[in-house]
Write a protein that binds this DNA or RNA. Structure first.
Length: 796
DNA sequence: GCCTGGTCTCTACCC
DNA sequence: ACGGGTAGAGACCAGGCG
């Protein structure tokens, strides 16, 4: 019988050296199914030396101890664009491949082995053209194996044909379960060997909310059991949480083990287990950790669930009762406060479902575009997402996947940033090259397989030579990157015009929008990938040539602007900020396109914009009255909120009302409030990331000292965690005055520090350009005696 | 012993 | 575990100062 199914999850098993692919999916009728495919044979390549008789090598292999090699074929492939003869060696047991490859590499006549490091399940997806989160058609028969009983699906099938991808955009009606846990600990970070899980809150996308709560004894055995039963009965396709890959799943698993049973929440009677890229795999379902997608929202500095939910408009901070980790135990022990804790936990689960709605479409599209299963796609770093996308395409064009080899890091020159003209400017437009680096790669055919090393002969069709660095790239045929990037850019353009046919709130629009976003992410990451030392296709001259052509492009652009009589105020990498004159700008765009062959387009237009003397820091007023603040303290996560707020207000008053006096008065008021301790405590907390193992720092730093204090009290901190501290009164260096904010009290606060090192620097950064002095902000000098602006005399 | 200026370290940003 | 370019705070250190 033939069925259609949407692929949710994939895993494989090897029994007695016989592999089975398990495809977990949802069919046309909405039934949850498992399709077992026993027909796929894995393989790897042995690239041969020139002038070697393949038969000789095959004979040698056959003489060796490679019992599970079933077939060897002589094939023509390419390696970095160069034709190569290779043996395609099929192996019954995929798990023996790495070992076989290592041994065969030692045989004379074999240059190197390739693709022995591709996992069996990925090999299957790529070779069969199967797409995670995509629809497929397959011939099947019912499977009657005796392990059938322990698999929680509506039907188990045996594949009688290769599944074939079908172009179909719809997504089945998925069951999604979100959950959030609260653990009880009085000794810092909860540890599963001693601290119970007192609350588990769940929400489904069908609107059902539940809580599993321990009684006063805090025994979590019934909590865990009830949660497991509930998961089984709801039978979700997708399970979501926040931070679950690194915390919750392991915690739950350990608690269950402690009670003498296994955490069973999957569709095949196995425990959740950590797998590739650190994702936790729950067989038959897609486990998604929303935290893995928090990087998609760079505006959110502190990647907490409540911040993300607030930013996305799911649940505003004001609507929430926020309870810190340190307070959990106190809240639990107090019967009245416990209600708040329950509410807090429930809200967490609701936020999780809200965030899921915001990112799931994107995750699904990214998964199907890249080819990594839905539960891997989030945990895979950007470089690996690009790489899997490339691997998929390499297979299509007969290009062998290079091995990952360790290379030496040698830095290279990047982009050009212009010095801004400081001060206020009116009516400034930003012209941006669209996808500059990807388009340069297309334009000059920059790619690992088109690169001509200095001793390569010049091909008949000629080569492009990069400015400054002199790297050469053959003009023909189109390179790997050019092909892939042209495809991505074309598809995205098509999708974006298709989107116009639908209303923005329609299902179709949402889907297409998520698709084009996924394409954009991969396209934009391609240059970074090319320059990444860990990339399989890393060739330094490729990345170096891209930036060299980028520099030439922007310099040429500035030259053309000058010729056209357009004043350039600033520019960074692929943009120029110009005094706006619609006609001149239009002419400029055309001329740039004619001369350079790349498209530049107006992006933002500022009614007014302010630059300091520093690069990468400015603030502009947009036509809709919104402020666009770039690089300044306002948008940095490592300044006290009070300083950020003051600076934001200063910028707003300056840009909207052009009144330095008024801005300064506000700063003075805030300083007064600080002195009188009228500023909320939370606005004084400074957050910084731990980027090195504690004790390894070359210099003492405030946040590291605060981290040490936290750890002494039992709080576990990992690399990449943010530490919140306040500065308290006392002698010595700053790092001697820093204290974790959860341990300090308001009366200890060093108000003077916040005035001198937070509020004033943030405010004066802007106000000094308008003749305001520190003395004036401190109230020592009257605001009326405004001296001439120090820095601007040169320009006005 | 203390101030000063220069350098280094660390973090977070821009594109 | 995607790139380089950049700002700014604070730690650290050498040299000058008598």
């Amino acid at each position: 019988m033939r069925i259609n199914f949407w692929l949710l999850d994939i895993n494989y098993e090897v029994k007695n050296h016989e592999p089975e692919i398990w495809l977990w999916g949802i069919d046309d009728l909405g039934r949850r199914i498992l399709i077992i495919d026993k027909g796929f044979k894995s393989y790897f390549y042995a690239a041969l030396e020139n002038r070697v008789d393949p038969k000789e090598v095959i004979r040698e292999i056959n003489r060796g101890a490679f019992g599970f090699i079933s077939e060897i074929e002589v094939v023509e492939r390419k390696l970095m664009g160069k034709p190569i003869k290779a043996l395609q060696i099929y192996c019954d047991d995929p798990e023996l491949i790495p070992k076989y490859a290592k041994d065969i590499e030692r045989i004379r006549g074999v240059k190197a082995c390739f693709e022995d490091d591709i996992r069996y399940s990925m090999r299957y997806l790529i070779d069969m053209g199967i797409v995670p989160c995509g629809w497929h058609e397959v011939e099947v028969e019912k499977y009657e194996g005796n392990e059938r009983w322990k698999i929680q699906v509506d039907e188990v099938y045996l594949a009688k044909s290769t599944p074939v991808f079908i172009e179909r955009q719809d997504i089945p009606n998925l069951r999604i379960l979100g959950f959030s846990i609260i653990c009880y600990s009085r000794e810092g970070t909860p540890k599963p060997e001693r601290n119970p899980v007192v609350i588990i809150s769940t929400v489904t996308n069908k609107g059902e909310e539940k809580q599993f709560i321990a009684d006063d004894s805090k025994d979590d055995k019934p909590v865990l059991k009830a949660f497991m039963d509930y998961v089984k009965s709801f039978d979700p396709d997708i399970i979501v949480g926040y931070g679950v890959n690194k915390q919750d799943w392991e915690y739950l698993r350990e608690r269950c083990r402690k009670h003498g049973f296994t955490l069973s929440v999957d569709r095949a009677m196995s425990e959740p287990h950590t797998s590739v890229y650190g994702h936790v795999s729950i067989t038959g379902r897609a486990n998604i950790d929303l935290y893995d997608f928090s990087d998609e929202f760079p505006e959110v500095k502190m990647k907490t669930l409540e911040n993300l939910a607030d930013y996305l408009g799911i649940m505003k901070m004001q609507e929430r009762i926020l309870i810190e980790d340190v307070e959990f135990a106190d809240h639990w022990d107090d019967k009245d406060k416990r209600e708040n804790l329950k509410r807090f936990s429930m809200d967490n689960a609701r936020c999780i479902m809200g965030v899921t709605e915001a990112i799931l479409d994107f995750a699904i599209q990214l998964s199907s575009l890249v080819g990594l299963p839905l539960d891997h796609i989030g945990t895979a770093a950007v470089g690996f997402r690009v790489e899997w996308f490339l691997i998929k395409h390499a297979h299509k064009r007969g290009e062998l996947v290079p091995k990952r080899v360790e290379k030496q890091y040698v830095p290279y020159a990047g982009a050009i940033v212009l010095k801004p003209k400081p001060g206020l400017h009116e009516n400034i437009a930003v012209l941006d090259f669209t996808a500059m680096y990807p388009n340069l790669m297309i334009r000059y055919n920059i790619s690992p397989d088109t690169y001509l090393s200095p001793d390569d002969p010049m091909p008949p069709s000629g080569a492009y030579t990069a400015p400054e660095v002199g790297h050469k790239f053959r003009k023909d045929p189109p390179g790997f990157y050019k092909e892939v990037l042209s495809y991505l850019i074309n598809v995205r353009d098509r999708i974006r015009s298709e989107m116009k046919k639908y209303p923005p709130d329609s299902l179709e629009y949402r889907l297409l929008n998520a698709r084009q976003k996924a394409i954009k992410v991969i396209t934009n990451a391609s240059y970074g990938y090319a320059g990444w030392i860990g990339a399989r296709w890393y060739i330094k001259p490729v990345a170096e040539a891209v930036t060299a052509w980028g520099r030439q492009t922007i310099l040429e652009t500035i030259k053309i602007a000058k010729e056209e009589g357009v004043e350039v105020i600033y520019g960074d990498t692929d943009s120029i900020f110009i005094r706006y004159d619609p006609e001149k700008a239009r002419r400029l765009e055309l001329k740039i396109y004619e001369r350079i062959g790349l498209e530049i387009k107006p992006d933002k237009i500022y009614k007014r914009i302010f630059f300091t003397e520093a690069k990468k820091r400015y603030a502009g007023l947009l036509p809709d009255g919104k402020l666009d603040i770039v690089g300044l303290e306002v948008i940095r996560g490592d300044w006290a909120p009070i300083a950020k707020r003051v600076q934001e207000n200063v910028l707003e008053v300056i840009l909207k009302e052009n009144s330095p006096q008024k801005a300064a008065e506000h700063v003075r008021r805030i300083i007064e409030d600080l002195k009188n301790k009228r500023i909320p405590y939370r606005d004084l907390v400074i957050w910084k990331t731990l980027t090195k193992p504690i004790e390894e720092d070359a210099v003492k730093a405030a946040h590291v000292e605060a981290a040490k204090m936290l750890m002494e009290k039992g709080w576990k901190l990992a690399l990449g965690d943010k530490v919140g501290y306040v500065v308290v009164v006392g002698p010595g260096k700053l790092y001697e005055k820093a204290k974790p904010y959860i341990f300090a009290s308001y009366d200890e606060i060093d108000v003077e520090y916040y005035i001198r090192n937070q509020v004033i620097p943030a405010a004066i950064r802007v106000l000094e350009f308008f003749g305001i002095t520190e003395e004036q902000l401190l109230g020592r000098t009257s605001l009326k005696e405004a001296p001439t602006p120090k820095r601007l005399t040169d320009f006005f």
